[in-house]
Design a protein around this nucleic acid. Structure first.
Lengths: 222, 222
DNA sequence: TATATTAGTGTCTGACAGACACTAATGGAG
DNA sequence: CTCCATTAGTGTCTGTCAGACACTAATATA
């Protein structure tokens, strides 16, 4: 009697062509048939919320081991016209290089959209997306979530582009590099990327230092 | 079939005798009979999550119009030995003066405990309490939630005591007062509190300025 | 009236953030 | 081969903010 239907919805972000994008699925059945929605599904009896989110994420993208964090739980009685459904929303960040490898099983009906200008969304999914964007922008400022959207080896210009895409404004190159350097968690490689004019040095994470910070509970400090 | 039992649990904080305290209820039935737990209850079919939390809060404390914020949703399949229960946790802050006016209906089995050294708790409620404490400490630094725990008229010493109780460390009086003054949201009153030796000036919130900040979406800025 | 207690006040210093402009290396065009 | 357009890479100055730090003022009580 006191039971409710509970789903997990996952706002999946990636950065493609220097633009922040969200994975959306086109609904094939009413209500909101033909409209886009944030991917999600019901929670099974024996799995934790996070496991359910990871499973959905894998089903949609074929990707594991990516950043995933609980966002908020939406439970307005009228949010689904068919009846009451509570949804525990998560958001995930996937670097584009991990993504291109695998095509999702349900990918036929899934497509990437601009995170800042999404198409009309079903249910209260517009609110959920906005909530996720706000959280992402906030966390970008005082954590290192931004690094989740960059390939394993990356240039400082690419990293800065991630920040600019999410924050929606340009950053000063020198100030940005100073801030990153001060973290001391990047390891310069003896490799250069030759896509532009002057080659750009590649970096990766200096895990040692990073783990140390993690032990202190700082995890994604900025 | 795809339904789960869903509850809201509310971590209710107050400040009494200069110590941060949580409201806990003693369980009268198994499992964890006789142990303390965070108050909560099932969500009704027609109420939103926040309404459910407000209702529980009112039932326990007789108080309305207090700070209430969703904390996190806990959904481990084994968190309740009787079967699966997902709980949406909230936390609330109640100033002691609001509290003393009304006695809760279920208050017989409820009691205040030290937030930092709670008795053994049922289910995963220790985790939930710790989660709430961490959130509260964090929000204290960059918002004005701390003001929620102080009476309508208060001295700067009382306000500082709130901060010290939550953060668990002493603060420098002059630095604290400068920080508060810089916010510009306090209105000095022509009243003094005479409990100590030298009388202390009373303050209240300068709503005008506060509302302005709220309009900008800053809400609880620091 | 002497004293103990709490209220109230200002400066200095180091860290960090934002504004700001030039040189270096390369690929492609001519 | 040379020139040029483009992107990479670097340092200083300045204002703000946070933390450390010590004394005077007002009252209640002994």
């Amino acid at each position: 009697m006191e039971s409710l239907r509970v789903t997990v919805d996952i706002v999946i972000f990636t950065l493609r062509d220097g633009i922040l994008q969200v994975l959306l699925v086109k609904r094939g059945v009413p209500p909101f048939e033909g409209q886009f929605a944030i991917p999600g599904g019901f929670i099974r009896q024996d799995e934790s919320l996070e496991d359910a989110a990871l499973r959905e994420l894998y089903e949609e993208t074929g990707v594991r081991n990516v950043f995933l964090e609980q966002l908020y739980t939406f439970g307005d009685p009228k949010r689904d016209p068919r009846g009451r459904v509570v949804t525990v929303a998560y958001y995930a960040l996937i670097a584009s290089d991990k993504l291109s490898l695998v095509a999702g099983a349900e990918a036929a009906e899934a497509q990437w959209s601009l995170a800042n200008e999404p198409p009309p969304l079903a249910f209260d999914h517009k609110s959920i997306l906005e909530f996720a964007l706000e959280r992402l922008r906030n966390k970008l400022e005082y954590t290192t979530v931004g690094f989740q959207l960059v390939p394993e080896k990356f240039t400082l210009g690419e990293l800065q582009a991630v920040y600019e895409a999410i924050l929606g404004r340009q950053l000063d190159k020198r100030n940005f590099r100073r801030k990153i350097a001060l973290l001391g968690i990047l390891k310069p490689l003896r490799e250069w990327r030759h896509t532009g004019r002057k080659p750009a040095q590649l970096f990766r994470f200096a895990s040692a230092r990073f783990e140390k910070l993690k032990d202190k509970g700082i995890l994604f400090p900025f």
